[in-house]
């Protein structure tokens, strides 16, 4: 079968427009004075942006989301990096079990997970926000595992780690001098993935903490119901934040492939 050279290009362009259109519309809506019965907005204004940015509640929401994301990232890295390192260097057999575990976040629906968590922790005096951070870290396991494991199988890290010790360094220094610099790309990508998992979660945070801990994502949905323009502003801000994260991700990974 002969496919015209232009066909894939046309299809891609249509998909691109289809995906871009809602964002353009949201952006237009976020800068419109009023857009109800007309094809295009009646007037343009940045007042919704000013209103949102100077709203103390908004700053609180951003701060909360940041706290959640940063702790999710730190916890995720502290737990996963040593485990994935250990599996690759000392106990490859564990990887088969790990592959099974990494499937679990896809299998268990959010609602069941949250119900289970509430049941499990209802009598244990740990702040719910701590549990949320732990859950969000664990839910990011599949992505982090895949990323770091790929880095570890790309080179003979076991021999490198052993060689460093043979040359006189202890295990901790060997890890810092030989392992960390060579898994840097994987660490950056994992950090960003964990960070965006913390930033982007709605289902688990909303179900688990509800109104007690309003994050950016929850605030966005609530605002949308009250004021469409302000909701659009937040959506655009959120979109820009994720775009920056994605751009860093793409740059980091493409550099690693070249280098």
């Amino acid at each position: 079968m002969k496919v015209k050279k232009r066909t894939p290009k046309i299809i891609l362009t249509i998909i691109f427009i289809y995906l871009l259109l809602p964002i353009v519309a949201t952006f237009l809506y976020s800068i419109s004075t009023s857009w109800i019965n007309t094809v295009l907005p009646e007037g343009l204004t940045f007042k919704w942006y000013a209103q949102l940015v100077f709203n103390p509640e908004f700053l609180n929401v951003v701060l909360r989301s940041l706290v959640l994301s940063i702790f999710t990232t730190i916890l995720g890295l502290v737990i996963f990096v040593p485990v994935i390192f250990y599996m690759n260097i000392y106990n490859q057999k564990l990887k088969a079990k790990m592959r099974y575990i990494t499937m679990l976040p896809f299998i268990i629906p959010g609602i069941i997970l949250v119900t289970g968590l509430i049941q499990l922790y209802k009598d244990i005096p740990i702040p719910k926000i701590v549990i949320l951070v732990m859950v969000l870290s664990v839910m990011s396991l599949p992505l982090v595992y895949q990323t770091l494991n790929n880095v570890f199988i790309s080179k003979d890290f076991k021999s490198m780690f052993e060689q460093s010790q043979l040359l006189g360094y202890g295990p901790v220094k060997s890890f810092m001098f030989v392992i960390v610099p060579n898994i840097k790309t994987g660490l950056i990508v994992s950090t960003l993935l964990l960070f965006s998992a913390g930033l982007g979660d709605y289902v688990i945070t909303n179900l688990f903490l509800g109104g007690n801990y309003i994050t950016l994502k929850i605030y966005m949905y609530r605002l949308m119901a009250v004021n469409g323009n302000a909701g659009s502003v937040l959506t655009i801000i959120y979109f820009i934040m994720l775009s920056i994260l994605s751009a860093i991700l793409i740059r980091t990974t493409s550099k690693a492939k070249k280098g």
Partner: peptide
């Protein structure tokens, strides 16, 4: 003695050079 105190060198088939 731990590995780093034995004063024994090892050459691996995979060279194990530090790529960084």
């Amino acid at each position: 003695l731990p590995v780093n105190k034995r004063n024994i060198g090892v050459i691996f088939q995979s060279y194990a050079l530090f790529p960084n």
